[in-house]
Design a protein around this nucleic acid. Sequence first.
RNA 1: GCCGCCGUGGUGGAAUCGGCAGACACAAGGGACUUAAAAUCCCUCGGUAGCAAUACCGUGACGGUUCAAGUCCGUCCGGCGGCACCA
Length: 804
Amino acid sequence: MDKYDFKTIEQKWQKYWEENQTFHAEIDKSRPKFYALIEFPYPSGQGLHAGHPRPYTAMDIIARKRRMQGYNVLFPIGWDAFGLPTENYAIKNQIHPKTVTESNIAMFTRQCKSFGWSFDWGREVDTTNPDYYKWTQWIFLQLFKHGLAYKKEMAVNWCTECKVVLANEEVVAGECERCSGAVVRKEKSQWMLKITEFAQDLIDGLADVEYPERVKQSQINWIGRSTGAEVNFDTSEGDILRVFTTRPDTLFGATYMVIAPEHPYIDKWQSSLKNIDEIRAYAEKAARKSDFERSEIIKEKSGVKLDGVTAINPVNNAEIPIFISDYVLMSYGTGAIMAVPGHDKRDHEFAKMFGLPIIEVVSGGNVETEAYEDIDEGVMVNSAFLNELSVSEAKSAITAWLKENNKGEKKINYKLRDWVFSRQRYWGEPIPVIWCEKCGWVAVPEEQLPLMLPEIDNYMPTDTGESPLSTLESFINTTCPTCNAPAKRETDTMPQWAGSSWYYLRYADPQNAAEFVSKEALEYWLPVDWYNGGMEHTTLHLLYSRFWHKFLFGTDKVNTPEPYLKRTAHGMILGEDGQKMSKSRGNVVNPLELIENFGADSLRLYEMFIGDFEKTAKWSKDGIKGCKRFLDRIFALEDMLEAEDDGHYSADLCNLMHRTIKKVSEDIEQLKFNTAIAAMMSFLNEVYSKGKINRAELRDLLILLSPFAPHIASEMYEKLDIGAIHEETWPDFDPELCVFDEIEIVLQVNGKIKSRLMTASDTDKDALLAAAHADEAVTAAIAGKEVVKEIVVPGKLVNIVVKM
RNA sequence: GCCGCCGUGGUGGAAUCGGCAGACACAAGGGACUUAAAAUCCCUCGGUAGCAAUACCGUGACGGUUCAAGUCCGUCCGGCGGCACCA
């Protein structure tokens, strides 16, 4: 019985689109452009999973609609192909990563094409292609030349499983984001990118882009701006210990100081410190702990008092002790704090433990039992000239005082750290710099790019933490581009985030051999108009790429301050058990099997119908049936098509048709795909109850459906013999025809529905009230009672309020 | 602890500005067709009471504002995501 032969239809149209390059975009200044972007996939060996089709189909729907709205649409696809999983797979199976990548890309290409997404396959990029990574290296060199890339010996996050350094953003709860391996601290010399230089720009830029509030908030929190002051404390050693505080108002309550275990003053003061051995032992113990271990024992404060060195509180000249403790981090502020136990929980806890004095400087709490941190209520006490001021008044007063007396100044700090950019693995872009004993780090000359990743046999990671490239003499040994002396190449590679930090630029001009992107292409296509991706990239890829873009903008390489005008974020698709899909849980849904059984159109429709696009959704294996059923019924509309047709909607369906166009058009823009589909289902139900549809109605229904289910829509449209559906214009609706002539008015007494009334939609207030009073159920309900109030909302209801 | 999001039938989820709670589907039950099954079509489908018309209850809990609250405000409970000794 199955007349809807989706397999044949889908293959036919996928072939058609490919042969005709239907979705290939070229610069055309006569038309407005629209740049739709999805996060390009990492071509893993597992192939597409059920999570991929959700965002891809969503942007495909937007792209297809925009084309029908007259836009010149750029909707590209490519491969984010460097990275660890490929390398690990390669090692395990003794196949070169390059070969693995090639076959994975071939598989992904085949799979993507079976969904019928309208990508411009002529603009494919591959981050592992030397023609591409040449420009990734080039951008790195621009950063390097502007002093924004530097090498630094530092404690890094070291994944013991992957044997690689991780960026702060890649460490999740003390574990490796990828493999969940333990992360420990390790001293290593690393390439760093100065993203911190752009901290303020990255916050400010958010004001000019359309991102979901939750994305903006996450980025702002991650950057972590806080305003306060730096304050100088004189020490008994005659030098100055500088601290950062957000509460300079509480300076009179500072009863001791704490410095980080790694603080350089320990060395400086060592001859005066009577308990230097104890201090060193504590510092060493702290250094050995991983970040995870440090946070594990969060409840227990520990520390050592410096015996022999004290500090002077600048506001009252009180002599106060100094401690070292691992609750103070060297990497934030100045690595030293003034401790105010009366008004900071951590300081309070520490003070209780070491029996240190607690002074109340803001009234309102009981500082002996608990730190009082409220800043909105309470006034200053025990604070000399600050007394009786509010907290915020005291902040500005003390900041001014500090400046006047040369004891400190206003200061803004950020939690954001510089980006650790080195990876000790093989499968990444070589960092194009050379170490010369005489000249230091020297850039590889741009004309020598790309610096090719050499073909090697052994790309196993090493336990020493050196890159596999470090043993390859032919690669390492070179000459200094500046002085020609023998020199050595950097052997670390870039992180996976490098290639994805600028790929949206390359899409505009993917084959350009002379520039990373031409000016003309930039000016026409950029910025990206709509970028959809996952929440998990908010503080990774999304922040990194904004950083690179802002750098390129600042150096006149791109023409807009922000890369993406609008960002939306889809929810994840979970397995049927409500858990994240994973092989080990056995709850993985294979989308290719579903295409086999139900067709790509049904799967596309179901992924959009499953629920609110922006929220996580649980997979249900039965849900797709309803979508398939819907398409079966659509296909059968051919049998209901009326022979005669005057080119207009029938009187029966005109109203509903306009409302459906309105609903579908507006819902797509708001990512409410589920209700857009529901509206089409309702329309179809109405057609079925009438048993007939005319050509004008079927034509526009198919156009509305085509972004969601392009194969079946194209096929049925072809039979109408009025052209190709992808060249059609998106239908308009007439707002006047969207309203009903007659509507139902609810008649309430004391807010309870007593009756309903069909009336002309433009009936005025007086007439509605009169009609209500004429209604039997209403009159019965108000009989013998005093009418207190009468509320009439035209088009909605009448509510009569009576007293009992 | 902080930031953000969310709690609606058996299930996924609808519900512009506060104005008919449960659209649209899935599952389930009943019926038609069929030798039978699948598919398809029709009907029922939040709870309680009732033969019924109908009445009352019902959007995590409790309060508040309002003629009217899933929606706004307050307090609490539960879940999810992110950050987390950031001074």
